[in-house]
Structure formats: structure tokens, C-alpha cells
């Protein structure tokens, strides 16, 4: 099963290497990894998607916790959480078919961020399902380039009715 881990780490050089190295050394597979600074500039947050059974995930979490630069590890998979990924897709778009592409962009509430002679760049944000769906919808036009940020995730806040 896929698990999404939210990992807080010291914002220091080499930390990403330590985390990535741990995964390769112990034979775990990273499906995606996104990292960036948090509101506290000395702390970075990594969102790591990793595939494995419960025993593997338990080991991953424990081994991550052993790294001195890892401050906190949370497996958000079991919690209610919001996850998003951003994708940029460059598609073939001759003027005659742009209308059709723009309709798809509208449906996905995506945006066109660049127009070239023969191409469009489309920006889309969403969860994994949405990203896969827009990719599939644009495929027939010819995807020239595609880049994804990797998933980021956050546990939802406490709801009012639960108080």
C-alpha cells in the first residue's frame, strides 16, 4: 500500500541526500518526493510517497526518525488529509485545435500559462486522480513535455462539529 509521509527536517545542506540515501540503502522505493522550506525558515518539509506493507512502512518511519536531522515524521495516510500536486504540460496546439484544448483546461480548472506558435503550456493543480485524468485527456493532442512537482500533503484541521 502507498503511504504518504510528512517529514520535518533541518533546513541544511545534505539533508536531502541523507533521506534519499536511507531509502536506497535499505531498499525502500520512493514514489515521489517534494521538499521545501516551511514557515519556519530553519525547517524544511518533505512529503514522501512510499510503497510498502505495514512492516516496511514502520521500518521506514523508524529509520527516518534515527536521522539526526529529521525532526518529525508523520504518516498522514491514515488521517484525513489534503494532497495536491502541480503539473506543467506542454502540448501540441495548432491554432485550429486550441479551442478544444481550452475546453479541457476549463473542465479541469487548469490554466494556460504560455502560448507558442504551435504549443500551449498548461498548469494544473490537483490530487493524483485529477492530474492523471488531465494528462490522459491531453494525450491525443501530443504531449511534448511534462513535469510534476510530486505530491505535497497536509492533515486537515479539526472540524467545528467535533468540538
Amino acid at each position: 500500500m502507498r503511504h504518504t509521509l510528512a517529514v520535518l527536517v533541518e533546513n541544511q545542506p545534505g539533508v536531502l541526500t541523507r533521506v534519499a540515501g536511507l531509502f536506497s540503502r535499505r531498499g525502500y522505493n520512493i514514489e515521489s518526493l517534494a521538499v521545501g522550506e516551511t514557515h519556519e525558515p530553519t525547517i524544511s518539509r518533505m512529503t514522501i510517497v512510499v510503497d510498502g506493507d505495514d512492516l516496511v512502512i514502520e521500518q521506514v518511519v523508524k529509520q527516518l526518525n534515527k536521522l539526526i536531522d529529521v525532526i518529525d515524521v508523520q504518516d498522514v495516510t491514515q488521517a484525513e488529509y489534503v494532497d495536491r500536486e502541480l503539473v506543467l504540460i506542454k502540448v501540441n496546439a495548432e491554432p485550429s485545435i486550441r479551442g478544444e484544448i481550452m475546453q479541457i483546461v476549463d473542465i479541469f480548472r487548469a490554466r494556460i500559462v504560455d502560448i507558442g506558435y504551435h504549443t500551449l503550456i498548461i498548469e494544473c493543480t490537483g490530487d493524483e486522480g485529477k492530474i492523471r485524468a488531465i494528462e490522459k485527456s491531453l494525450k491525443p493532442f501530443g504531449i511534448l513535455e511534462l513535469v510534476r512537482t510530486g505530491k505535497i500533503a497536509m492533515v486537515r484541521g479539526q472540524k467545528y462539529e467535533e468540538d
Binding site: 512492516l55 514502520e58 521500518q59 523508524k62 529509520q63 526518525n65 534515527k66
Partner: peptide
């Protein structure tokens, strides 16, 4: 003392 050894 190492929690990662438990169940490894």
C-alpha cells in the same frame, strides 16, 4: 535502546 530494531 533503538526502536528501529524492534520488529526489524
Amino acid at each position: 535502546i533503538d526502536p528501529a530494531e524492534i520488529g526489524k
